[in-house]
Design a protein around this nucleic acid. Structure first.
Lengths: 175, 175
DNA sequence: GTCTATACGCGGATAGAC
DNA sequence: GTCTATCCGCGTATAGAC
């Protein structure tokens, strides 16, 4: 992994700010300061606020797709992988996780972000349906994962589910 | 029910705008126009943007509490009631539903909204735990409901779950 | 490539008429 | 109580130096 480009550093800063302050309060000034560049410098890399959003969304999508690929290749299976990584802590979370949370927070306001989020969710649901065979079981697992994301958006964890991933899947599968 | 006060009309307009455009784009001008008053008129009733937010949050909380009380009294039980009403369509939704969606969208940015949302969620979870006995089953049902809300935030329905409410609860309960 | 300085528009809030 | 007019601050974007 080469050292992160200036572009990536800026996107990292933007992502972090969105995750812990919310989209509305994030200004170009704040992003620039957090990334260690001036506003002018930021606007050299991303011509506008919208371009910055697109940058975040593109990267979120890439990270998501890579993560889904990893999950598909994992021994534990997609469902287990998804549920397990959904209960991560947003603050200490992985790059994918933080990008995803940022994307969802942005989705409350930006149609583009909502669209990208739907795409990502659909990918996971499809993979889980494929894996579990039973569409309803897949839908339950996917929805539980989505619920966990919503909770982290509102600053709530899902402690009860962390240790119950196996059992949740087992119950979802019963017919 | 007396005809809605001007205050309520304004809150209705604000709620609707947040639900279908997102918090970031909603200006006092837009709210005033939608409510059929001038910006000055709006600011007579709510002294600031923040006061307007508080108004929405207070009402959302009231509506939520009343809804929870209804659910507790319902023959079908809290879990079934919660899941069933969670799959409502946001556009055509009830007042509680729209207020809740608005609150969650606001939660992405406003700590106060996040706090209120957590409170509301906790109330439902508690009621379901009480009802089902099994904490994990309650947690699963609650999380599925939350996931359904997240989906409607990003403009996605949960068609597969609409007709499967009974079955979802049945599976969640299995131990 | 990155910075400083500045122009510009918009949204929030106030003052005061009616 | 509700309106119009106006002010002010802030955030985006541009121009141009280095």
């Amino acid at each position: 992994m080469p050292r992160p480009s200036q572009r990536d550093r800026i996107l990292d800063a933007y992502t972090d700010l969105v995750v812990d302050a919310g989209p509305e309060t994030v200004t170009l000034d704040a992003v620039a300061a957090a990334a260690g560049v001036s506003k002018g410098g930021l606007l050299y890399h991303f011509g506008s606020r919208e371009a910055l959003l697109d940058g975040l969304l593109d990267r979120a999508r890439e990270l998501n797709d890579a993560d889904l690929a990893t999950a598909r290749a994992a021994d534990e299976g997609v469902s287990r992988y998804y549920l397990r990584t959904s209960v991560d802590d947003p603050a200490a979370g992985s790059a994918v996780y933080r990008a995803t949370v940022a994307m969802i927070k942005l989705a409350a306001t930006e149609p583009r972000a909502a669209e990208t989020t739907r795409r990502c969710m659909a990918g996971w649901r499809a993979a889980m349906t494929e894996e579990l065979g039973d569409p309803l079981a897949a839908d339950i697992v996917a929805t539980v994962g989505d619920g966990i994301y919503l909770r982290s958006i509102v600053g709530d964890g899902s402690p009860g589910l962390v240790d119950a991933v196996e059992e949740v899947i087992r119950r979802a599968e019963r017919s």
